[in-house]
């Protein structure tokens, strides 16, 4: 019974963390979002090719190949800094986004402090008069437990994103840019 309660508490903690992250992104609080990422974070989204069925499993570009995102904290910092600049025309006026996160699956990670967390996402973007983009995909995160008080406001969420691998379910990116985080 205690084990079941512990698992439930862990799940609630992870869900709360991922919902907080979505809220920060949708509220354009990118500087705060950056504090949810570990200093050694790798934020990566491979491209998705159409392959013959016998080449199944080779659709995603490999590590070290061309990617949609292949960022460390420095380059994510550049993207965040760009978001805040008045000359970032793609986000002025700002887009409206809504991140929906679901299908959360929690598994043990490599170390005692880390968990392997998978989640599905649907991100809706509405921009200017009538521009609409819809992105669906899956995230493979490594979440690292940290002391409360590290990251975020008001005591901190207790987790940092140490690694995120994003499967974006598109071959040709159908939006005119990816000035968004998943």
């Amino acid at each position: 019974m205690n084990a079941a309660l512990d698992a439930l508490a862990l799940r609630l903690s992870i869900e709360e963390f991922l919902y907080l992250e979505a809220e920060l992104l949708d509220d354009h609080r990118y500087d705060e979002w950056l504090t949810l990422l570990a200093d050694d974070v790798h934020y990566w989204a491979p491209t998705q090719a159409n392959r013959l069925r016998r080449d199944r499993g080779r659709e995603a570009s490999a590590l070290g190949e061309v990617a949609l995102f292949d960022d460390d904290k420095t380059t994510l910092g550049w993207r965040v800094r760009q978001m805040g600049l008045a000359t970032h025309w793609a986000e002025d006026p700002p887009s409206r986004t809504r991140h929906l996160v679901s299908n959360i699956r929690i598994a043990p990670g490599d170390g005692a402090r880390e968990l392997a967390v998978r989640s599905n996402f649907l991100c809706y973007r509405n921009r200017l008069r009538d521009e609409v983009d819809l992105w669906a995909g899956e995230r493979h995160d490594v979440l690292r437990r940290v002391e409360l008080g590290v990251g975020g406001d008001g005591g901190g969420p207790g987790w940092l994103i140490a690694r995120r691998a994003i499967t974006l379910d598109q071959n040709v990116v159908l939006s005119k840019n990816l000035s968004v985080f998943f």
Partner: peptide
């Protein structure tokens, strides 16, 4: 390098 980046522009 492996991989190709494809994007549809309006």
């Amino acid at each position: 390098m492996g991989g190709v980046h494809k994007i549809r522009m309006h």
